[in-house]
Design a protein around this nucleic acid. Structure first.
Lengths: 233, 233
DNA sequence: TCACAATAGTTTACAGTGTACACAAAAATA
DNA sequence: TATTTTTGTGTACACTGTAAACTATTGTGA
């Protein structure tokens, strides 16, 4: 795995490009990733950048990949900061990390979950595995909690709608999630709500309605956990 | 209220500009609203457009206003299509209309709820009243259901977190919503989840997990309504 | 050590973007 | 009909992504 000097320099430059791109994104939005602006900040010509990323789209893809992995890192770290058998605490910690990451890296969050960038289409074979990493953290906790009899999915989940039920059963098998259908659905349902809260907060809609988004967020998660018999301590 | 011939022509042109902008937006994303492209499609010079909208931002603001009002129209229509005392059905109809509008006008939805457009900041004094119109439909139904003893908010809502509770109480009074705190919170909590589902569906994340987004959507709403003792018939 | 190949960089060009300014044409009004 | 208001044009500047041709630098094999 040793890199030649040239490869290392090249990797450095690629990283520098991404880091400047991230700064610009944070300052002026995801649609404002400009190769020319990056080159200017680096003291390079635009066309030199094309040696490192063959196009604007390739740079965006690299940024998206980094973002998904960084988010997954944050979630994994939060998970392992809690005692193994405190499932509710682990879930809360992970979801708080999810929100914290989204707020601290709002541009990256918009990049992966917000409006598509005009003309850009993410290559699914590259991004999907990266998305899954984060999701797997949550599923892992739920599976453990279920196996240990601590998780009791709502009775409604015993009659999931047919297509959803079939599709998710298939997904569980195919992706090798070691979890029954009901807790899996519970996870998806909860994730959707977190996502809604964070999206609205990020774009300044929640504060105007709810006052204190963090308090709101914690309260909602707690309620969701309670519906499955999970309580914090 | 009669308009002069000139005013009418002017209004026509303004509408034509918006409608072309909407088409471009639908085809290439919200960040691709280009005055030059619009002018080209109209057989006008760019600079002539400036007679109708003094800047790119002003055009965007007009589009946002239209979008909020169109969404509110759709919700109001859905509401009045149901019998007055069938509160659950009214709520379901309104939320289905919300989703249907979002999917059919996905660019407009992104415009009002998605990533901010680089450099653009919506003038709140113009947009906030438009947002409120749609929200008021839901609150109205909940207030009626509550007053008629049909709505039973979850027991958890009797102990809302302090800041949220204070802020929303203030908001209810200030905006003249005629509704108690608990059902109001129920509305917000539910809205957040709808929003999350729609956002994820719009950006192609839900289908990969859930298979059939509409089935998922209906099932989730139904469950939310049930937690407040509301049932469809 | 030197020649050659690979890599990294530059200059130039084209078509696109928002918008400011000076001017001409058309229409409504006095 | 003369004047004012409105609508439109043309030109200019600084910005965007990216393709092509060319030069300078660096690493490696003989």
């Amino acid at each position: 795995m040793t890199m030649t000097r040239r490869e290392r320099l090249r990797e450095n430059t690629r990283e520098e490009i991404k880091s400047i791109a991230r700064r610009h994104m944070q300052e002026q939005g995801t649609a404002a990733i400009s190769l020319r602006a990056i080159a200017r900040d680096m003291g390079l010509t635009v066309t030199a950048l094309y040696r490192y990323y063959p196009s604007h789209d390739d740079l965006v893809t690299a940024l998206i990949l980094d973002a998904f992995n960084s988010l997954a890192d944050a979630m994994e770290n939060a998970d392992s900061s809690q005692p193994r058998e405190r499932y509710a605490n682990r879930l809360m910690a992970v979801m708080l990390a999810y929100r914290a990451w989204a707020l601290q890296n709002s541009a990256d969050f918009q990049l992966i979950y917000g409006n598509p960038i005009p003309g850009y289409h993410a290559p699914r074979e590259i991004t999907v595995p990266a998305v899954v990493r984060g999701f797997r953290v949550v599923v892992g906790i739920l599976a453990e909690a279920m196996a240990n009899g601590q998780l009791h999915p709502s009775v409604e989940y015993q009659q999931l709608p047919p297509h959803v039920s079939a599709f998710m059963t298939e997904l569980i098998e195919q992706d090798g999630y070691n979890i029954p259908l009901e807790p899996m659905y519970f996870g998806v349902s909860g994730w959707v709500k977190m996502h809604g809260m964070i999206m609205l907060e990020l774009f300044q809609h929640t504060p105007a309605v709810v006052g204190d988004p963090e308090e709101f967020y914690r309260f909602e998660i707690n309620n969701i956990l309670k519906t499955a018999g999970l309580t914090l301590d």
